[in-house]
Design a protein around this nucleic acid. Sequence first.
DNA 1: GAAATTACGTCAGCCATGTTGACATATTTA
DNA 2: TAAATATGTCAACATGGCTGACGTAATTTC
Lengths: 181, 181
Amino acid sequence: MADVISAQGLGDHPASEHALSDQDTVALIELMFFAYRDFVSDPDEILGQYGFGRAHHRVLHFVGRDPGMTVQQLLDILQITKQSLGRVLKELIDKGYVFQKEGETDRRQRLLHLTAAGEELRQRLMGPQMNRIRRAVALPEGNAAHLYRKVLYHMVSPANREAVRDWIDRASLLGDSQNGG
Amino acid sequence: MADVISAQGLGDHPASEHALSDQDTVALIELMFFAYRDFVSDPDEILGQYGFGRAHHRVLHFVGRDPGMTVQQLLDILQITKQSLGRVLKELIDKGYVFQKEGETDRRQRLLHLTAAGEELRQRLMGPQMNRIRRAVALPEGNAAHLYRKVLYHMVSPANREAVRDWIDRASLLGDSQNGG
DNA sequence: GAAATTACGTCAGCCATGTTGACATATTTA
DNA sequence: TAAATATGTCAACATGGCTGACGTAATTTC
């Protein structure tokens, strides 16, 4: 029974029916909590060494994924206020992990980029999460990755799905900027 | 292409290989962020009407799942300090959503229970999340629920898996306390 | 070309929720 | 009886959200 949640959840039930039982649904709600809690624990530990928090991580990650993005684009993705962003962004700039470049076509814009140190830290933070995802998805079941991605996507609110899909598509097209390139 | 993340992610790749590409792995990391963000948005809105926050929600949920649990058990699940818990617990008790009963075998314990109002609120908070999970899992793919549960479970840190499995098993055995019974 | 809008920054204060450290009290266990 | 346990509480602090207000430079619109 190692590495199996419970007989209740993974053995006894014929999981092929499409309507989920209340029990199973609640178990998923709780697993969402536990999984997210541990999922962010790896980077949290690293961030502490730099005097940063989760907010810094998000900025590092998304700027690294889409170098040259505008402040407004970042705000749209994070869905926080510019004042909240301002604080962490200032710290990241002051400590030399992020820098800004005046927009060429629109000189009001301060396009966001990672410094070499920023990209390095971003990789360091992403490593454990990639390992965790790969370990979790690489199960004997077969195309878990496909399903899991689809399920997570459908967990996003319908109103936000277009923005999320656009982001994922866009970031994918940007190439392997998430792999140190 | 409606309701599909992207050609990149869900169309072009043969997802049957067990080693996930970097691109796909990063996409999952980001989906974890977006999905969790929206997953907690439903209850957040309701909680605001009561002057409560996410911390209150967690207490309501887990106490409702395992009525009579000790304070220490709750602390172990939430993995926060007793001072953090103390604040929200006090508010929930003062406002009449939670009450405590002296333990019978060990009179030091203050066993936690929901009042009728507490159970009602808990159901109200859980409703949208159950709908969201069911919608996300009820995809044409077939046994998504099974896979998704397994994947989320494996996202939990190995050191925490026993505790999480025990909790899920235990809560399941407690019957349908999550369904108003 | 003047006016309105946009992109961004910043100051100030507030709130929720986490932390550490210290101390108190009742009860159970050794 | 002494030590450990279960719980509560006070005080101070950090992070990262929020609102509201105001300012500046650049672009767009009329």
